[in-house]
Computed example of a mutant assay.
Amino acid sequence: MIKRIRQLYKAIRAGITAEDESFINEYLTLDERKLFDTMAVYDKRHALNVAASAAKLVRQYQITVNFRLMMKAALLHDIGRTADTVILSDKILLVLLEMLPPKLQHFIAKDKCQGFIGRRRQALYRCMHHAFIGAVKLRKIGALDVAAVVERHHNKPDDNDDSELVVLRKADEAN
């Protein structure tokens, strides 16, 4: 619970610096950057924190990875949630719903819904399936290697997971 409170505090205070902008532009293509820019500022900040944590893990444990792919995946892992479809309260509600029995999670809706409540139901679906949604977007721009990592970043770990995926998961969990 304390981790979730810290996450909320970070989200409220999130911001992007000129140094962050340079870092983003160093690793992302123009099309990837357009996808990155669709995220809310708190998700962008989270992605930057994940990238920094991933880089630190790679250095600290001398893990062999495709570093450019690792940074791209870290920056783009949450692009399935966009600022125009998911608001901070949706993410908070999802955390609360995840604590409820599955039969009470019927509130979540895949298809487009009308009104404020309907949009929140759809936003919860996007939060739950953002890895798949983000991978679809990445495939559309030809970023197949990044899509493969992004799509699986919330899957249960497997012995055959690429080192980029393993590091991304650890860095994401830490942030």
Rank of each mutant, 00 (worst) to 15 (best):
V150N: 07
E98V: 06
K10A: 10
G142T: 08
D161K: 05
F23T: 06
K170W: 09
R6G: 11
M99G: 14
I117K: 09
L94V: 11
L168K: 02
Y42N: 13
K56S: 13
A174G: 10
A11R: 06
N155I: 03
I141T: 06
M99K: 14
Y9W: 14
E19N: 10
R121E: 09
F67D: 10
S53C: 12
Q114G: 10
A55K: 10
D37R: 03
Y61R: 15
F36A: 03
K112Y: 10
K140Q: 13
L94F: 15
P157R: 07
F107M: 14
A131D: 12
L75R: 00
M1A: 15
Q122K: 07
N25C: 10
D172A: 08
D159L: 12
I117L: 14
L96S: 12
G142W: 00
M70T: 10
F36Q: 09
L28D: 01
S22T: 14
D37S: 09
I133H: 07
I141G: 04
R81N: 13
H77Q: 06
D31F: 01
R81S: 12
L96N: 09
A73P: 03
E26Q: 15
G134K: 02
V146F: 03
G118V: 08
Q62V: 14
L138I: 00
A14V: 09
P102T: 07
D37C: 03
E151W: 02
N66T: 08
N155A: 14
L165S: 05
I63F: 08
V166R: 10
L168H: 03
N175M: 03
I2F: 11
V146C: 05
V65L: 01
A83R: 13
A18D: 14
R119P: 09
V167Y: 03
G115M: 01
F67W: 04
V150T: 06
H153W: 04
K3G: 09
E32M: 05
E173N: 11
